[in-house]
Amino acid sequence: MQSQSAKYAQFAVRKRLAKRIGIFIAEISLLVILAVISLRFGSVRFSTGEIINALIDGSDSTIRTIVVNIRMPRTALAILVGASLATSGALLQAVLRNPLASPGLIGVIAGASLSAITIMLLFPALTVLVPFIAFIGGLVSTLLVFTLAWKKGMSIIRIILAGVAVNAMLGGGTSLLSVLYSDRIQGVIMWLNGTLAGKSWDQVKLLLPYVAVGLLVAVLSVNVANSLQLGDEAAKNLGVRLNLARIVLCSTAAFLTGISVAVVGIIGFVGLIVPHVSRLLVGSDYRFMLPSSAILGAVLLVSADIVARTVFSPIELPVGVIMAVLGGPFFLYLLRKVRGYGH
């Protein structure tokens, strides 16, 4: 009897692990396939063979130029930004233990928007500085949220409420500026909805080191994130320094979102939905859930970008819009299909 149940137990453990590994393999394969599609499609279509030939022997320099200088950096950027935003959302959901937690909640996106739009509308001559200023703006408003939430330590509910209030104030500022300068708003719309158009290797190089550091910190904090899911007191009992953990995880999340938004503009949604999708697929253990979120974030953004630049070609749509239109129904489908989620 004992040995039989032990056997069954062993089987259950293996089955779960096998399922998780299977899902990881599927996610990575999907990302690779999408990356290849992303290199093939655009205003001109190439076959995979043409791309490989052009890359290996450099026979056709036009294909090579388009693929290497335009589509590759764009795809790489989509991967980096998607992974960053999704990881950021996953970290915040662990710290705030709230299913609605997303990078937008802690003020970083609203701060980046307001500072970017101020520069673009009021000081158009300084537009080159938008990434830098948006990044600073995002971090400053995150800091503002934390400062307002701090009272002998940081409580979750105060972070959320302070975040909502700061978002409302900054959002009001953004709306005010767009009404006052409605004649100039056209140029800002793409940024406000997020776009990967016209990005080059420069942006990839700018983003890569920061994203690498942010993701590394995130991966190293999976045990802390797991403990936080058990509740504040249980986490503290396990030796987690609550305030330190909250500050480190929230700052990492803010940093990853801030740097992404600075480069590509506002892309919401990834950070909110992808961690949920990932949890539905591999479960809530952050050792699996966090890497899966990063991969799925990249998958989602790469696919949204493919759609954004092909459906109404040659007109490019903002990628954030595509993401909401396609991702929303997909998420709702998962929510309906997976039993027991949300309880």
Partner: peptide, 10 residues
């Protein structure tokens, strides 16, 4: 503690 909660798939 008195009230403990774990993730639903834990």
């Amino acid at each position: 503690g008195q009230h403990n909660h774990s993730p639903s798939d834990c």
